[in-house]
Amino acid sequence: MDISLNETEIYRRYADRWSVLILTLAAATFLVSDWAVLYSSLGDFVLAFAVLLIFLLGKFHIQKKQMIVLLTVVTVLALTFILSYLYNDYWFSLRRAILSTVKLIFYSVSLVSLYNYIKQEQLSSTFLKLNNILAIATVVIGIILTILIYLDSLELPHFVWSFTRQDTRSYLYAGNDAIVRTRSVFSEPAHLGHYLNILFFSNVMHKKSQTKKTVLFILAAGILLTLSYSMILIFLISSATVLIARLIKGDFYWSDWYLVPVAILGGLIIYFWEYIDVTIIERTKSILSGEDGSANIRLFGAWTYVERDRLLMGNGIGHTPPITNIYAYILSDFGLIGFIPSIGLTLYMLLNSLPTFIFFVMMNMAKGGYLNPAFWMFLLFVFLYGISKEQNERDLY
């Protein structure tokens, strides 16, 4: 049985205005997901406001099959919670587990309600355009802050980063004052790259969206300016995957316009070759030689928190230190009880789209944080643009 509310009169009168507000709040959730407010993320409060509006305006809807998925999530949470409380009592934090459980249920319901609202109102293209606007603004802000840092003017960067990090490690490459990595409003460059990668992939996958090539170029440039090895690698692999898939299907058509961004990117690569050599070439050599500690932690160290004697139930929700691999994070916190459904979701991506599957796996292995709204916004974009069937949509812009 579906759960559905009656649409209010005030929504019917001003449907377009309410839609823009709700979609803007949802888009802004990602941008402030790193901002710490009241021991939580500011993105949590923005997301809660968006979902509350959907509920109050009578646009809240959950399908029967989605209820089954939500009940599965609750069942997994209940099983791991009970088992952890009974057998991990020597270090299990009941308060942390309760708060994390409530948070996870909130994220799950928010994901479903936002997805249903956008699909029912046929606003996927509008939502993507709003995100593109905010993303371009974010890249511009990032470039301005980067230039100011090069000029040794830190007042504005520190002001913008009042709710995140202000330490030099968050924007200097290996402590080198000569190499500044763009992070914009996020707490670190990799998080900006994560955000821009999601939008770039969503734009190229969403066939109904007539994204201007300049937007894709700005998103790509923003990813490169982060100098984040993992995010640049994901960008290159995912772009190549989509291109190959379209060549095989015969959906790719060459345009002479493509020579322009290629020439610009080529010029930038030549101009910034010294930076690229240090941050990409030398980094690749150190990873292949096994000398890069950060890469080893991402690939192998994240799994060290998995306890063999608690492999079934995990350590308890929210009990694993922040790690950059979602799969290791879930196995550590929820054990096989939660890990198996997550693998099922990954296989579901594979059955629907090979490029989406590859992108999904790479992104989950490069950034953790399932108790942060950014992860759930990532899932929203994947479901909307990575595996969703196309349909005719109205456009508010």
Rank of each mutant, 00 (worst) to 15 (best):
S100H: 03
V51G: 09
W91T: 11
A48D: 04
F60E: 05
L71Q: 15
S100K: 03
F81D: 01
T72W: 01
I82V: 15
F60Y: 12
L99S: 07
L71I: 13
L77D: 00
V46D: 08
D89P: 03
L94S: 12
V74S: 11
A78Q: 08
L47W: 07
D89A: 11
G58F: 00
K59P: 01
Q63E: 10
L53V: 08
I68M: 08
V76Q: 03
L83W: 06
M67L: 09
R95W: 11
I54Q: 07
Y87I: 09
I82C: 13
A97T: 14
L77E: 09
S84E: 03
L94N: 11
R95V: 11
I62L: 12
Y85V: 10
I62W: 03
A78P: 04
Q66E: 15
I54G: 03
L83F: 15
I98L: 15
I82E: 13
F55M: 07
T72E: 03
M67V: 10
L99I: 10
L47G: 02
G58H: 01
L53R: 06
M67Q: 07
T80N: 04
F60D: 04
F81H: 06
L77H: 03
T75I: 09
S100D: 07
Q66K: 14
K59F: 02
A48T: 05
L56D: 00
V69N: 05
A97Y: 02
L70R: 11
A78N: 11
V51L: 10
N88V: 10
V74A: 11
L94D: 05
L71F: 15
V46Y: 01
I82F: 15
V74K: 05
H61C: 06
I54D: 04
K59H: 02
K59V: 02
V74G: 06
V73M: 05
F81R: 00
A48Y: 05
S84H: 04
Y85G: 07
A48V: 03
T75L: 14
M67T: 07
I68K: 10
Q66R: 10
L86K: 14
D89I: 06
D89F: 12
R95C: 07
V51I: 13
F81K: 00
T80H: 02
I62R: 06
Y90C: 11
K64L: 15
T75Y: 08
F92W: 15
L71N: 14
W91D: 10
L83D: 02
K59S: 01
S84Q: 06
A50N: 00
T101K: 14
S84L: 04
K65A: 05
S93T: 07
G58R: 01
L86Q: 12
V69T: 06
Y90H: 14
Q66W: 13
K59W: 01
Q66M: 13
T75E: 05
T75M: 07
I98A: 15
S100R: 05
F81S: 00
I98Q: 12
S84N: 12
V46M: 08
L57A: 00
I54S: 05
Y85H: 14
F81C: 05
L86C: 12
L86V: 12
L79C: 09
L70W: 14
V76M: 06
W91P: 02
V46G: 00
L94M: 12
L57N: 01
T80W: 01
S84T: 06
R95N: 11
H61P: 05
F49G: 13
F92E: 07
F60N: 06
L83M: 11
